Computed example of a mutant assay.
Amino acid sequence: MRKLHVRAAGLVAAAVLGLGLAAVPDAAAEAGPFPVLALPFKAGQQVYSAGIHSDDGSTGVKNALDLSPADKTVRAPLAGTVHLQHCAGGDWVAIDHAGGWRTGYYHMEGIKVTDGEQVEAGDVLGSTGNALPCGGSSTGAHVHFTLWTLPDEPAANWSGLAYSQLSTTVAVAHGEPIDGKTLGGWLFTAGADQYTGTATHLADRMVTQLPGHFRAKL
Results as ranks from 00 to 15, higher is better:
D123T: 13
T146W: 04
S137C: 08
G122P: 04
P133R: 02
A156C: 09
A131D: 02
G116S: 14
G140I: 08
G122Q: 05
T139Q: 12
S127F: 01
H142F: 07
G136S: 13
G122A: 10
S138F: 10
G126R: 07
L150W: 13
G140E: 11
V113M: 06
N130M: 15
E153Y: 06
A141E: 04
G140P: 13
G110D: 04
G116W: 14
S138V: 14
A156M: 14
G126Y: 09
Q118T: 15
A141L: 01
V113K: 02
G126I: 06
M108P: 09
Q118S: 15
T139R: 14
L147H: 10
G116P: 12
K112C: 09
I111A: 04
D152Y: 03
T128P: 03
H107L: 05
A141C: 03
L132K: 14
V113Q: 04
T146M: 13
G122S: 10
L132R: 15
G135F: 14
V124K: 05
I111Y: 02
W148C: 00
P151Q: 09
L125A: 08
C134M: 12
L147S: 08
G136L: 07
V143N: 05
G135K: 11
L125F: 11
G116D: 13
A156V: 05
A131Y: 03
G129S: 09
Q118H: 14
F145R: 01
L147D: 03
D152H: 04
P154D: 00
Q118I: 12
D115S: 12
A121P: 09
F145V: 13
C134A: 13
G135R: 11
V124W: 06
A155V: 06
W148L: 09
T128D: 00
G129E: 03
L125S: 06
D152M: 03
L147I: 09
V143Y: 00
F145D: 00
A131S: 12
D115W: 04
P133Y: 05
E109S: 15
H144M: 08
P133C: 08
S127K: 07
P133E: 02
H142E: 05
T128E: 02
T114G: 15
V113P: 01
P151H: 12
P151A: 05
